[in-house]
Amino acid sequence: MSITVSTLTKNIKGIDLYLEIHQNKDAKETFVLLHGFLSSSFSFRRLIPYLTEKFNVIAIDLPPFGQSGKHSHYQYSYYNLAATVISLIDHLEYRSVYLIGHSMGGQIALNMMLQKPSLVKKGILLCSSGYLGAATQSLRLLSYFPFFHYFVKRYLEKSGVKKNVENVVHNKMIIDDDMLKGYEQPFLNNEIFRGLSRMVRDREGDLTSDRLKAITTPCLLIWGEFDRVVPLHIGKRLAKEIPNAKLVVLKEAGHLIPEEKAEEVYQNIYQYINEKPVN
């Protein structure tokens, strides 16, 4: 098995997208990975080695996170983020892919399935965001103030990286310095807070029940039993409303299952994509 890793930045729909391409010379299928809110492609670091045993992997930093662009003129709606990722995949000349979305990345993945169903063979939703509304009107109005991004920065600094990481894992023993540094890295660039201010304004809320019921792509939902960020009842509701969906619950796991349960996540994904459709 020969794996080559390349990193590049592509300007798509007016924003720079940073991506890592893990190429397995023997693989025919490709996974695209979309991370969650306040995160980056770093969150898939433990899952990627399992995936690349048999597949190609494209891990994307969604703007304004990670090493992707943080421009205040870009529209950070889920619809536009999904359209941007679709344009990137088209630009890279992939005709169909498997799609993995964690947390917020799950909502963007679902938007992609609605916008271009033919692109996604199967969707994998890891503790996907669900049923969240848009920001309040007052908060959206505040986002227009020139110094709003400073308030966003102070709010996030108040909670701190360690506290946020502790909230998304069930087993706190896995937290080490490398993990904390990895999740802190995106916030060392102050421009991210300008992008987050615009995202507060643009985020239109999660897909409604009617829109979820229109998704035709087969979806596997994998959830942590003790997810405190997106509780299991959200996964159960999504599994009922997405027409062709299956839910798997991982024991002794929290929200950040690509870190906590990478091998189990992979085993469930591999089994699912090799299942033959039921007639």
Rank of each mutant, 00 (worst) to 15 (best):
V85F: 02
Q107S: 15
Y76N: 11
Q115I: 04
H91W: 01
S96D: 13
R95A: 10
Y78R: 11
G130Y: 15
I124S: 07
I89S: 05
V85H: 02
L119T: 10
Y74S: 06
Q107K: 10
V120M: 02
A109N: 03
S129Q: 12
L81G: 01
P117V: 08
H102P: 04
L92N: 10
K121H: 05
G130P: 05
G69I: 03
I124N: 05
K116M: 05
S87A: 11
K116Y: 03
S96A: 11
A82V: 04
C127W: 02
H71W: 00
K116H: 06
M104C: 06
D90P: 00
N80Y: 01
S96K: 11
N80A: 08
V97C: 07
M112C: 10
M113C: 15
Y76W: 11
R95I: 10
Y79C: 09
A83R: 11
S87Q: 11
H71K: 13
C127A: 12
S77V: 14
Y94T: 12
V85Q: 01
S128I: 04
I124D: 03
Q75W: 00
S72R: 14
H102S: 14
L114R: 12
F65D: 05
G66H: 03
S68K: 09
V120G: 02
L81A: 03
L132G: 15
L132P: 13
P117I: 08
H73K: 06
L126T: 04
V97F: 04
Y78L: 15
S118P: 03
H71R: 12
R95L: 04
L88H: 08
L114N: 08
Y79L: 01
Y74R: 02
S87G: 13
Q75A: 06
I86P: 02
L126Q: 05
S118M: 11
I100A: 11
P117T: 13
G105K: 04
N111W: 04
D90Q: 14
R95P: 05
I124T: 13
F65H: 15
S96V: 06
Q67D: 14
C127T: 11
H102D: 09
V85P: 01
Y76I: 10
G105P: 09
S87D: 14
G105V: 02
P117W: 09
I108C: 07
L119R: 12
L125E: 00
L119A: 14
S128D: 06
Y74V: 01
S68Q: 12
S129D: 10
S72F: 03
S96E: 13
L126F: 07
D90H: 08
L114Q: 13
I86L: 08
S72T: 14
K122W: 05
S128V: 09
G123F: 01
Y94M: 04
I86E: 05
H102L: 15
L114G: 07
Q75N: 08
K122G: 02
R95W: 02
Y76A: 09
A109T: 09
S87F: 01
Y74L: 01
V120D: 00
C127K: 03
I86Q: 00
L81P: 00
G123T: 06
K122M: 14
G106A: 10
G130E: 02
M104P: 13
N80L: 05
Y78E: 08
Y78H: 12
S72C: 08
H71G: 13
V120L: 00
L92A: 06
M104V: 07
H102G: 13
V97Y: 01
K116V: 04
G130L: 08
L119Y: 14
P117Y: 05
G123Q: 04
G66T: 09
L126P: 02
G66F: 02
R95N: 06
L119V: 12
L125W: 05
